[in-house]
Design a protein around this nucleic acid. Structure first.
Lengths: 345, 345
DNA sequence: CAGGGTATTGGGAGCGCTCCCAAAAGCGGT
DNA sequence: ACCGCTTTTGGGAGCGCTCCCAATACCCTG
């Protein structure tokens, strides 16, 4: 007596599938992994056995033997509330999930709390062997991307870190979105168009400002640095910036705010200053978040295709993992934004 | 020549750590897994070797050998937009993440699209060997929990499915939250208090209705079924329900709405009907979402400690996995809610 | 100083799968 | 019928770790 032990309970193993199909383990493996070097008859026999036994490969064994995991990690910096909050997080997850749906890939969620954790992360990720990493909200000075790169870990980031981004990245067209928003304000007859920016270390925030500037000069308006107030993506920051603007240029008649949340802060200040929206001051936000839809008056805002961004990130990463041919560029995707006009402009 | 091959690159293995520490593989393993049966000297030697080599255990190998994965799955039904949306999803994830932070446990995110996927899920989860499952937004008739139970897979759900919930679950105190909300309305002198409910198949929605009823009768008001309008947790549903209420009881002076999103719909209808909030009709929502804070007027709402719920779910699951002693009850946690009073009431 | 523990330790035997090599089969052509 | 290929197939050798048992070291006690 030799051969495959009959296991009492538990899930069937490859060995058992092979025995049932009357073939060797190697052959069964080939069928399951879709190798072409199998005869049709054999393939069918194995597939039947798989179906009858309800066989599902053991991931751990696969990972150990094959030196891969069929898992990718989505790294979310928790302190970065801007990204963790609506609408980014769930939309990104949704998009990533959609792209992974008909794949064997699993999605690992890694929340990174503080900086110490972030530093340990690269080692952690390599040791726990994910096949690739999705990074959102990376700062220009974050060492993580380079670290992963050195470790040979495929990696895609959301939002280029600077103009000369080297990593595969997915971004929305911040410049064009901002430009269109300001153009829209101008087309409604506004002439003193101010802007409240996000943290300018964030490249996307910088691009939105660039878009604003481009639109202002394209419209032949007089650029004025006093119409530009930097903030930090928070509601309070938006409010403070609005107060500054009002003090510096009380004659402004429109504000392009680089995020809806900041726009909410700005609106509050405008209301307190008895400026009517949109009659006295038109307001346009960025993100098209829930806040925009429910603000009063409903906020005109630039929508980013966030779910699509998640999807593209995942696809890029899968390509990267599959191994791009050496000559290939590191692909960087820029998706178009859409201006959603509501009552505030 | 025998013994440990020297590996060129790659991560160090247990074997190498053991060699470096001058101990056997078994001993090294014991140290790393915190077994007490190791002498102090040995422990220190191994720990030093671990530090020097930057050793991190290989998860796949551990999983294969130890028949566990140190991973749990968070199953999110994607169609259930109510749960996927703000504030639930990110807050739950945050809480779960926090609870897992100083654990070796990984979080696997599993989005379930359609019903077919959901059906395959149990097998999938068992085959892919997670140690436990966190289920959010389970319906009373969902077969998944029972299936997992039969498969012996630890599992915690968010939101009891009915009064006699058998699975470990974490819930907010829907009854008390609703009761307090209505009591608050009554205390402000409202006498014709209506309610817009969620889908009553959802136990939590039913409990909120129960709480409403309890408060109404406690206040000595005349119960009137015409003051109760069922909806479906959507904004449109809330609007439709509000129209019904207005048609049936034009004299109502307050509405307790079982979710902020529905409240947004209701507010829209009230505005169109020229009812001032809160002067003519006071409004209270449920969830304390972003919508509530940015609605005009800002919406009084019942806050649920969602992040805490996530944390407790994870803790419960970890306990479950660690193996509760047989006599133990299936623990079910109910967390208190908090009424956040704003301008709408 | 022997005897009988008890505290530590080493390392074999897998876990279930992929990789890969050598063996077996199939196929023409002569 | 035989030879030289090309397909297809079987199964050994690990992947890195945990489990567990037997071996060794250490400690008292009488």
């Amino acid at each position: 007596m030799a051969a495959a032990r009959v296991r009492s309970g538990g899930r069937p193993t490859l060995e058992e599938v092979a025995a049932r199909a009357g073939v060797g383990r190697g052959t069964a493996s080939r069928v399951i992994n879709g190798s072409p070097r199998v005869s049709d008859a054999t393939r069918q026999a194995v597939e039947a056995a798989v179906a009858e036994l309800g066989y599902v490969p053991n991931r751990a064994a696969r990972a150990l033997a094959g030196n891969r995991t069929d898992a990718i990690a989505l790294v979310v910096p928790e302190p970065e509330t801007r990204f963790f909050a609506e609408p980014y997080f769930s939309a990104i997850v949704r998009g990533v999930g959609a792209a992974l749906a008909d794949t064997e890939m699993q999605l690992l969620l890694t929340l990174v709390g503080n900086d110490r954790e972030r530093r340990r992360l690269a080692q952690y990720l390599t040791a726990h062997r994910v096949d690739g990493v999705l990074l959102v909200a990376v700062h220009a000075d974050d060492p993580l991307p380079e670290l992963l790169e050195q470790l040979g870990m495929p990696c895609v980031i959301s939002g280029a870190r600077h103009a000369a981004e080297t990593l595969p990245s997915v971004d929305s067209d911040n410049f064009e979105g901002a430009r269109a928003a300001v153009e829209h304000l101008v087309s409604r007859g506004r002439r003193q168009v101010a802007t409240i920016t996000g943290r300018l270390e964030v490249y996307g925030a910088q691009r939105r400002l660039d878009g604003y500037r481009a639109a202002v000069s394209a419209a032949g308006l007089a650029p004025d640095e006093r119409l530009i107030a930097p903030a930090d993506f928070t509601e309070e920051g938006g409010a403070a910036a609005m107060r500054d603007l009002l003090a510096r240029r009380p004659d402004l008649d429109a504000v392009f705010v680089a995020s809806d949340v900041m726009a909410a802060g700005a609106r509050q200040v405008l209301r307190e200053a008895d400026r009517r929206i949109p009659e006295d001051v038109a307001l346009v936000g960025f993100d098209d978040s829930v806040v925009a839809r429910h603000m009063h008056p409903a906020l005109t805002s630039v929508r980013q295709p966030i779910e699509e961004m998640g999807r593209r990130m995942a696809q890029l990463l899968l390509d990267e993992i599959a191994g791009r041919t050496p000559g290939d560029e590191r692909p960087s995707v820029v998706l178009p934004t859409e201006l959603v006009v509501r009552d505030s402009s």
